[in-house]
Design a protein around this nucleic acid. Structure first.
Lengths: 208, 208
DNA sequence: TAGATTGTTAATCGATTAACAATC
DNA sequence: TAGATTGTTAATCGATTAACAATC
């Protein structure tokens, strides 16, 4: 379960495999192969087999992979079999949308608390959530022993909030603020900035 | 301006440099170096110099880089000096948040039209935007000669919409739907799925 | 001048791919 | 059995890093 020193680039592909497999499962597909899965996710079959081989032997020669079994294996590898608590900081437009998004729970995540620093927002209810004062962020993170956070504040305050979260024991941050964060090396950050994706693609648009 | 065959991994870092430089500019910083920029974005100084060298010589020995000049160079390289039109498909919670997000325009992008397939939504105004019928998607893409799209439909309809967009001339898709898309190789896709990021980080959480 | 920092080269490091024996 | 597909090896390919001459 704890394969040693798997390259992060391999880890980064596993959730993509998992997502595709769960999509297949929904459609009633019981079995797949590295070739078929590869076509769906746009990754070579050899790559998929090599990636999976880091963790064990999940397939059967001549047949391929049992969709359900591979889903469970990947969930175990990624530690997403159980639902995990995440805090959400910054209740602007985006924070609201994230809070109302229904797609986290069935993929292993649940927002446990949400925060803002605006007195006009603190105490307000959004669905079943009450917006908490960001001044209590560190305290509540420690109390609930939360390890993951989503950060949706403006860029200018993102680092300050990050420092508080790190100091309170957060080990993984999904950062929606359009700014690079400085964290110790035992803390992970994933960036979500739509503009980065758009700019990256824009490069190719005007190319001859 | 059109450096030949620059690896995509290099291109993927340029928007990150640009974002950091614009943040510096805001703070009144006039000059930087590969070391200083590298610390901010978490990338080695050698890497930054190597990346930039693909496109020209933008620095000065002993001094480093002029922030404003490097911003302009990067904007030209990425083709984001001018604002570019993007269509937005799928006006659920997320589509609404994206439409109201103010952070696109000053980084090179503008939503020109938005679409949904729900008769209850079609025709409704959101700010200055009227929600259009997705049945007219292909027609309006061609009329306006739009090349980029943001896709926020449910996973199940994402591929169908993608096919229409590709057929209508879209060359770059920012995909928020949690599913891998199949596109011809002259069309680019960037994926935004927060759960992929969370799952990727979850792997490291339970590791000893 | 002395210190700082670039752009570039060569060496290292790591990731991907092709091929195939094993076997269901 | 014949066909299909795995897991794995070795070869290829590409990316990163360290080092340094050039020079502001």
């Amino acid at each position: 379960m704890n394969a040693p020193n798997v390259p992060d680039i391999v880890i980064s592909r596993l959730p993509v495999y998992l997502r595709a497999l769960q999509f297949m499962e929904q459609q009633g597909i019981k079995t797949t192969s590295s070739v078929s899965l590869g076509e769906k996710v746009g990754i070579s079959a050899a790559q998929i087999r090599k990636d999976l081989s880091q963790f064990g032997e999940f397939g059967k020669q001549g047949t391929g992979y049992d969709v359900n079994e591979l889903i469970e294996q990947l969930q175990q590898i990624l530690h997403v079999q159980k639902v995990r608590d995440v805090v959400l900081v910054g209740m602007g437009e985006l924070g609201h949308a994230i809070l109302r998004y229904g797609g986290f729970i069935n993929r292993g995540f649940r927002i446990c608390h949400c925060y803002d620093n605006d007195p006009a927002k603190i105490g307000k209810m959004i669905g079943e959530y009450k917006i908490l004062d960001v001044a209590d962020l560190g305290k509540t993170i420690r109390e609930c022993n939360v390890k993951m956070a989503m950060l949706c504040t403006p860029a200018i305050t993102a680092q300050t909030i990050t420092d508080i979260m790190v100091e309170s024991g957060i080990k993984a941050i999904l950062n929606y603020a359009p700014v690079s964060l400085n964290v110790p090396k035992d803390v992970r950050v994933q960036y979500i900035d739509p503009v980065i994706g758009l700019q990256r693609m824009a490069y190719y648009l005007n190319k001859k």
